[in-house]
Amino acid sequence: MLELRLVQGSLLKKVLEAIKDLVNEANFDCSSTGFSLQAMDSSHVALVALMLRSEGFEHYRCDRTISIGMNLTNMAKMLKCAGNDDIITIKADDGSDTVTFMFESPSQDKISDFEMKLMEIDSEHLGIPDTEYQSSIKMPSQEFLRICKDLSSIGDTVMISVTKDGVKFTTSGDIGTANIVCRQNTSVDEPENATEIKMQEPVSLTFALRYLNSFTKATPLANIVTLSMSADLPIVVEYKIGDMGYVRYYLAPKIEE
């Protein structure tokens, strides 16, 4: 028996919007720790890892560790029917082939339930070690979205280079080239407007902009995004979900022929 009640239901709506374009169907893993997911896109170039810790739910009951396979497009369709202020409860009985989403309006005058068919999904989990990254950048998530969107109109790939002077985003295409440099700036009024660069080693990696643009669908979840990079490793793009968890994206780099 699984029963998860999330007072801030809009978080779940935003999570689905953040992952459904990258992954069509996925297994959600429920355990006493929390509600999580790890899934790769069909080309195995990008991966999304979601964690919603059990403490973040008003009520969290998960009798045994289970994996429930859902079509994310269909799940997003159902969650779109929840109001932004609604409380969302996810329920699944043991052995059932359906999951129920219940939406309650804040004043309890409207209660809806949507039942969705589950699916059997073969999925492999990648073992991603906890690593110290050579460079990490914290920046406003809106700024990162803007950079990815702007550069996509010029080129298909972006080279992200971190030096002690800042982080440089470079692209080139048929019409020309573009460089955007962001410098460390922590002397701002609001911490969410700061750009913070931590660098042990300079790093320069190239990525497909199409995926980075897809990751920015998570922007409504967090004011700040963290980019972590090491030479010859996938980049990690992390959006924290309050103190409840995170959405992390991993993207394999382009490698010189």
């Binding site: 195995h44 170039v45 492999e124 996938p234 490698i255 010189e256 022929e257």
Partner: peptide, 14 residues
Amino acid sequence: YSNQSTLSSFYGTR
């Protein structure tokens, strides 16, 4: 000029 790598070349399955 460059090839797209996949995640399985960096991480093993578990």
